[in-house]
Computed example of a mutant assay.
Amino acid sequence: MRGGLTEAGPTPARGTIQAVITAMSVLAALALFVASCATGGTGARDEGPAHTDAVAGVTPSPSPSLTPTDAPDRADAVRLVKDDPSVSAEVKRELKPCVGDEYPVDVSYGDLTGGSGNDVIVNVLTCGDLVGVGSYVYRESDGGYENVFKAEEPPVYAEIDRGDLVVTKQVYEKGDPVSSPSGENVITYRWASGRFVKEFSWHNDYSGVVGGDPTASASDAG
Rank of each mutant, 00 (worst) to 15 (best):
A29S: 10
L80W: 05
D164F: 07
D142W: 08
T52F: 01
V26Q: 12
G134F: 10
G134I: 04
P10T: 12
L80I: 14
E140Y: 09
T215C: 01
I187Q: 12
Y157T: 05
A192V: 04
Y172C: 07
G128A: 15
G132P: 11
V78D: 12
V186F: 04
E152H: 07
T6L: 14
I121G: 08
K92A: 11
S207L: 04
V197I: 15
T42A: 14
F33M: 02
T215N: 03
Y103A: 09
L5E: 11
V209R: 15
Y145F: 12
S179N: 05
E152N: 00
P177N: 06
A35G: 04
S61R: 01
S219F: 02
K169N: 09
V105D: 11
A44P: 05
I17Q: 06
V197H: 02
D46A: 03
A77S: 05
I21Y: 09
A151D: 05
V167F: 00
P49C: 08
G194S: 05
S219M: 02
N118Q: 13
R139F: 10
V120I: 15
P177V: 10
G110R: 11
G4F: 08
V91W: 00
T52W: 00
D129I: 14
W202V: 02
A31L: 11
R190T: 15
P85E: 08
D161A: 14
E173L: 10
A13N: 00
V78R: 12
G114V: 01
Y206C: 04
A71Y: 04
P68I: 11
V186Y: 09
V78A: 09
T113A: 09
A89F: 08
L125D: 12
A151W: 02
A38C: 04
A38N: 04
S180N: 14
D213S: 11
P10E: 04
P64K: 09
K92N: 10
